[in-house]
Simulated assay, not measured.
Amino acid sequence: MKVSELKPRASATVTVKVLKLGEAKQVTNKDGSLHKVSDVLVGDDTGSILMSLWDDNIGKVSENDVIDVNNGYVSVVRGSMRLTLGREGKMEKSTQTIENVNTENNLSDKKVEDTGYRGGGFRRSYRRY
């Protein structure tokens, strides 16, 4: 999969180059737990996107690293797409190389509608008589 093919609220397996590391910020989760998050600009020859790295994953990449993101997820944050590892995703340094990255097509700069739909089909309700 290429960066330009990423869609909101979809799973993603993609190889990207790390272009710029963002500052880590401390955030409080809904349950009150503290976490660190950093937005990292990544991309390939078709486009770029911000990738949110959480906690221990923040220190695992450096600028110019090429990483394989397997079973990641494209979330929508305030109308902007973000690549994230989610619950099931994994990232590792890649054996591939990416020379040129298309930063003109930054998917995180494009506003998308956040429908809140997370998939899984439709709900059925059953009545007992």
Rank of each mutant, 00 (worst) to 15 (best):
G79W: 15
S52Q: 10
D45N: 12
L107R: 03
Q26M: 15
D68V: 04
R78N: 14
N102K: 13
L21M: 09
V18Q: 07
D55L: 00
L85V: 07
V61W: 06
G89F: 01
E23F: 09
K30Y: 05
Q26T: 15
R87S: 15
G47V: 01
S75F: 06
S62L: 06
W54I: 08
D55Q: 02
V14I: 08
L21D: 00
S33K: 07
N29R: 13
L34E: 15
L21Q: 04
D56S: 14
S62T: 14
I58V: 14
V74C: 01
M91G: 07
N106H: 03
R87V: 08
R78W: 15
S33C: 08
N71T: 09
L34G: 10
G86W: 00
S80Y: 11
H35K: 09
T97V: 11
M51K: 13
V66K: 10
D56P: 08
D55P: 03
G59C: 11
L34I: 11
L21P: 03
G79E: 04
S38H: 11
T84P: 02
V66Y: 03
K25W: 05
V69E: 02
T15E: 07
M91R: 06
N64K: 14
M81K: 02
S48N: 06
E88G: 11
Y73T: 04
D65R: 09
V74Y: 00
G89Y: 01
T28P: 03
A24Q: 02
L34S: 13
E92A: 15
